[in-house]
Amino acid sequence: MTGARRVLLALGSNLGDRAAHLSRAVDALGDEVTAVSEVYETAPVGGPDQGPYLNAVVALRTDRPARDLLARAHELEAAAERVRLERWGPRTLDVDVLWIDGEEVDEPDLVVPHPRMFERAFVLVPLADVAPDLVPADGPPAEGVVRWGSLASDGPVAP
């Protein structure tokens, strides 16, 4: 074990009760959670025609190795009954390992830092809520990223 460090996970959902899928995933992460971003609604990026996503970023303090974090992400997705039919297709829950302080991984099925995290407003906007030190000042514009609410309030923000 390398000692506890900050880990950042991205959560997204566009099928079923999107907020409930995100909420259950955060709850399942337990006492390792140190912060949860606001929830943002965004249009899908790539893939087939599909509905909008709710996105959030969760900060953890953990000593879990990268492989264990990936396995945990897959467990959370399975608990939400995610079905993988096509790349970038709609999903009940998507969990990505974005960042592990002091660690880089470059393997076929796991790359940390996430290779596209700094290109995606749907990641950078919620990331700024929990890890502003990682968000570049010249990141992509936040166009199309709408604050939806928080998991604590379990509901959308009034327009």
Rank of each mutant, 00 (worst) to 15 (best):
E143M: 09
L93W: 09
V123G: 07
R72A: 12
Y53W: 05
V145Y: 01
Q50A: 14
A73Y: 06
V135R: 02
T62R: 05
R24L: 15
A73W: 03
M117P: 05
V130T: 04
R64K: 08
E32C: 15
V39T: 09
T92I: 09
T42E: 03
D101Y: 04
E86K: 11
E38T: 14
S23C: 14
L93K: 10
P113S: 01
V105R: 04
R82L: 10
P108A: 11
D31P: 09
P90Q: 02
E119I: 10
E119G: 03
P52Y: 02
N55K: 08
T62Q: 00
V36R: 01
V123Q: 04
E41V: 03
A35Y: 00
P136M: 12
A142R: 15
R72V: 05
A71L: 07
A142Q: 10
D133W: 07
L110K: 01
G89N: 08
R87I: 09
P115W: 05
P44S: 10
E143C: 08
P52K: 02
Y40T: 06
D94E: 10
L69G: 07
L124H: 00
A35Q: 03
M117W: 05
E81N: 07
R67G: 10
H114A: 02
I100R: 01
T92L: 06
R84N: 03
N55R: 00
A80N: 09
R120F: 05
M117N: 04
V95P: 12
E38P: 09
A142Y: 01
T34Y: 06
R91D: 06
R82K: 11
V83D: 00
D129M: 07
V83I: 06
